[in-house]
Design a protein around this nucleic acid. Structure first.
Length: 711
DNA sequence: CTAGGGTTAG
């Protein structure tokens, strides 16, 4: 949706030009009117038009002496370099018969500005070897900066040598450029060495080092450097604040962040868009959306980044609708979304499982000119996979030319969530073949895939060998995957022993994994033990009470069921109502178990009855064991018959064309009864039914589910 | 001639 932009930079009106000519022609040129000064002025103001006029004039009246020519041409180089006509600058430079150090530095600065760092370093080498010139502070700062942006430590160290030789180590700019170079090239020992051996560093050096440390994830160390800074330098600037907000965000340390914020308010530093966005980001990442909003509302000028930061704050805290809602408000202020904005929006629609909205955003992205940005493509993969359309996710993935770690991880874990373990492992192999290094997240997806496929040996090999080989430290999530892997394969004792022996502090999730396995494998003895300990760890885990009561029921131990029910009453634990929803055209229809609030309720109930009647001959038996209320079996059967996902599936069948897959989202774990019903319904209706429950996707097709009945 | 804001995979 590109709208024409109003002209922002005003060109100098043409009627001013005769005046310029006059001043050039004036016989004894005063300092303000000589052409070199005018060239500098037009370079500084990036006014190429006037600069070219002066250039033309110089050509037509070329009476200049040779020495004057060096200065003039250098000024012209500077002009073209600053005005982004670097090739013109280069032509002039190459035609010079004689050059001084300023000619070199002007051209180098131009290349640096255009991001052509390697060109700068090439020039630097030529300058010292061919022209035998000694680099000055300008050339050194430019060369060092080129090393910084291109990550060339080796060249940076050579520059360091020149710095020492020239005696410019004490020059503030050069020193800072040196510290910055080492920080950006991830050579923090180098940076610290410069910082420690030389006296007199300023905000700039500290900012650089803290930034470098943060980039590498050394958050504690950055905090230490900050402590040193507090003692030695109190002139904090915008960049310092931005860095500190970034640090508190990454540490998720709200207290520290608020402290810095308070400090900033006390100082009379003006809060620019950069710092403003950093504060919003900090509050968002520290979980305080309200403050993020407050800061945003207080900003005098906002740009795309401020808006995107606020959307991200909402997104990160689960307020997906609010994040999406901000788009139209932003556009009302005439601010266009960019690739980051689209990434947040897509992730928000993924969070809602809003397929229709995601499709819509995809269309916007295609039109926007940001469609080929990796972050946007990644967000598309995530969005399609989370909204249940794994095929579309893979389409986006395969069409991508450049893929980063996040891309591969998104596809691997996407497949894993959908129970497509084989596909996940193939993508993983491709990732290794492409030379991309797997990280922590990659292996979570890979191990989950192994668990789905029951590949015990492979899983253990990945954990014990490959991860070490790849330099990835296994964490709780990986160990939990192993628990899942073992118990899914029916090796419950091994899983239990693994939990006993592995050097980790297990959380409820791990125990619940084992518990679930006991339930599926009908090992109720161990299951009850595990459930007791889960309840001990988290007395409000409703799902566990339900499972425990289920297990008692399956053993026909009604005393146990009664005990659990009593316990739940005493602890005031209520079963969260089951809610399912699905999108039809662009409306989301929400169903709550056994409620008849939907306007077409009677048709839906009728349809459910019809479906259940159709699948009963195929072996469907209502599973009423999970019903916790006191009632007759017949009532219990009614109860499970009208679970929210059954209502949603029935509605989907009523309202969508016969070839379309039905996509349902449910807030809880899918129950046994609905699971077996859905399998048979997919068979008798010949439809693909995709249900996303709290943990995973179930693809029902032709009487089978992708989770292979283990979830 | 030295720096910098936002996003994501579990």
């Amino acid at each position: 949706m590109p709208t024409p932009r109003p002209p922002t930079s005003r060109q100098a009106p043409l009627q001013h030009l005769p005046f310029l000519f006059k001043s050039i022609h004036r016989p004894s040129s005063s300092p303000t009117t000589n052409p070199i000064r005018l060239l500098k002025k037009s370079a500084d103001t990036k006014n190429l038009k006037i600069g070219k006029v002066i250039h033309a004039h110089l050509i037509t009246s070329s009476q200049a002496s040779k020495n004057c020519d060096v200065f003039q041409t250098t000024s012209l180089i500077n002009l073209y370099a600053k005005c982004d006509e670097i090739s013109t600058a280069r032509q002039l430079f190459d035609q010079m018969s004689e050059r001084n150090i300023v000619s070199w530095s002007a051209l180098m600065a131009g290349y640096l500005q255009n991001g052509l760092a390697l060109e700068v370093l090439g020039l630097f080498k030529k300058m010292v070897s061919v022209d035998n010139l000694r680099p000055n502070e300008y050339v050194l700062a430019t060369a060092l900066s080129s090393c910084s942006i291109s990550g060339r430590v080796e060249e940076g160290k050579q520059c360091h040598g020149y710095v020492l030789k020239s005696g410019l180590v004490f020059h503030q700019y050069v020193k800072n450029a040196l510290v910055h170079m080492y920080s950006r090239c991830s050579d923090l020992e180098g940076a610290m060495q410069v910082l420690n051996t030389l006296p007199g560093y300023d905000v700039f050096s500290y900012n650089s080092v803290m930034d470098g440390l943060m980039e590498l994830g050394y958050l504690k160390e950055a905090l230490e450097v900050f402590g040193r800074m507090v003692g030695e330098c109190n002139a904090w600037d915008n960049v310092t604040y931005r860095t500190l907000f970034g640090l508190s965000a990454r540490l998720k340390d709200l207290k520290f962040g608020m402290h810095v914020h308070g400090q900033m308010l006390k100082s009379d530093l003006e809060c620019d868009v950069f710092v403003g966005s950093a504060i919003i980001d900090m509050y968002g990442k520290c979980g305080n959306v309200l403050n993020a909003r407050k800061v945003f509302d207080g900003l005098q000028n906002r740009n795309v980044v401020s808006w995107t930061a606020l959307m991200a704050a909402y997104f990160q805290n689960g307020y997906f609708e609010e994040a999406l809602h901000l788009l139209s408000k932003m556009e009302l202020e005439d601010i266009m979304p960019n690739e980051y904005t689209f990434a947040v929006l897509l992730n928000s629609s993924a969070g809602l499982s809003a397929l229709r909205l995601g499709d819509l955003l995809h269309a916007c992205v295609e039109k926007s000119g940001f469609k080929d940005h990796t972050i946007v493509r990644n967000a598309l993969v995530i969005m399609y996979s989370k909204t249940g359309n794994i095929k579309a996710a893979n389409k986006v993935f395969t069409d991508m030319i450049y893929r980063d770690t996040v891309t591969w991880n998104a596809m691997i874990s996407g497949y894993s969530h959908h129970g497509l373990g084989k596909e996940a492992l193939i993508v993983f192999q491709d990732m290794l073949a492409a030379g991309v290094y797997p990280n922590y997240v990659t292996f979570v997806g890979v191990l989950a895939a192994c668990a789905h496929l029951g590949l015990v040996r492979e899983g253990l090999y990945y954990l014990n060998q490959l991860m070490k080989q790849m330099g990835v430290e296994p964490g709780l999530e990986h160990y939990t995957c192993i628990v899942g892997l073992l118990s899914r394969a029916g090796l419950l004792d091994e899983a239990k022993n693994f939990m006993r022996s592995a050097p980790v502090k297990w959380d409820v999730i791990a125990w619940r994994t084992l518990l679930n396995a006991c339930h599926v494998h009908r090992n109720y003895g161990l299951g009850k033990q595990v459930a007791e300990s889960v309840i001990f760890m988290d007395p409000h885990d409703v799902g566990t009470y339900v499972l425990l009561s289920n297990m008692y029921a399956k053993e026909r131990r009604w005393d146990g069921v009664v005990k659990i029910r009593k316990l739940m009453r005493e602890r005031n634990i209520k079963k969260e109502p089951g809610v399912s929803w699905l999108e039809i055209r662009n409306i989301t229809h929400v169903f709550v178990s056994e409620d008849n609030k939907h306007p077409e309720s009677s048709q839906i109930y009728e349809k459910v009855g019809e479906l259940l009647a159709k699948i009963k001959p195929l072996g469907y038996v209502p599973n009423i064991a999970s019903v916790l209320h006191d009632m007759e079996d017949e009532q219990k059967e009614d109860c499970v018959s009208y679970h929210s996902e059954k209502l949603a599936i029935a509605y989907g069948l009523l309202k969508t064309p016969s070839e379309a897959p039905i996509r349902v989202i449910k807030n809880l774990r899918m129950c046994d009864d609905c699971h077996s019903a859905a399998k048979l319904i997919s068979k008798v209706t010949n439809r693909v039914i995709i249900v996303r429950d709290v943990n995973r996707f179930h693809h029902f097709q032709d009487g089978c589910c992708s989770c292979a009945d283990y979830w």
